[in-house]
């Protein structure tokens, strides 16, 4: 239990730092920005108390907003998106979790199976990116630009998440 707590805390700090310090400055073709901190919500235990998941979602969104405020994030944008994803996470995990898995496992290639985990993580990440893009669009809601932005952000974020999951699985196997 303590090990999981320490690992999750380290992941929280790492993802927020990565997002705020490096990834928020990356703008591919002025549209796509990698958004990977939803990986923290993806890797929470499937049966973790939903209230705790909501609070953790709020914390990570707020942390990104507060520390990334100088890089253009409006306080509240990431928090709103992360809270909504945290609320939807339970249902999404239930959809993609293998039926024979009954314990409180942490979703990964090993516990969910490669294809199920990829679908689960893709759906959570896509939902997060859609919410973030729509909230950020605000008054300047142009459907074509929005679609390009969602597709671009997902295209650059998902490979990074896949790489992180490969590293995570390699370390846990050891």
């Amino acid at each position: 239990m303590t090990k999981i707590f320490i690992r999750q805390s380290a992941m929280f700090i790492l993802l927020v730092s990565l997002q705020v310090c490096i990834l928020s400055r990356v703008h591919i073709f002025h549209i796509a920005t990698p958004v990977i901190y939803s990986y923290f919500l993806i890797k929470l235990p499937v049966r973790l108390n939903r209230n705790i998941v909501l609070l953790l979602g709020m914390l990570i969104g707020l942390a990104v907003d507060l520390f990334g405020h100088t890089f253009g994030y409006t306080i509240g944008t990431n928090m709103l998106a992360a809270v909504t994803v945290a609320f939807a996470r339970f249902r999404l995990a239930g959809l993609f979790k293998p039926r024979d898995v009954t314990e409180n496992v942490i979703p990964s290639f090993v516990t969910f199976g490669r294809s199920m985990f990829l679908r689960y993580s893709a759906s959570v990440m896509l939902l997060h990116i859609i919410l973030l893009s729509v909230i950020d669009a605000g008054a300047s809601f142009v459907p074509s630009t929005l679609f390009l932005r969602i597709a671009g952000c997902f295209a650059v974020s998902y490979p990074i998440m896949y790489g992180m999951e490969m590293i995570y699985c390699g370390k846990t196997e050891r």
Partner: peptide, 27 residues
């Protein structure tokens, strides 16, 4: 409780967003 907590957190996030962004506030 988790649904009520979600609504409360959404309201809090929306409040922060509206307070800190002119465009969102006018919209």
């Amino acid at each position: 409780f988790h649904r009520l907590l979600f609504l409360a957190l959404v309201c809090l996030s929306a409040k922060l967003l509206i307070s800190n962004d002119e465009i969102q506030r006018s919209r």
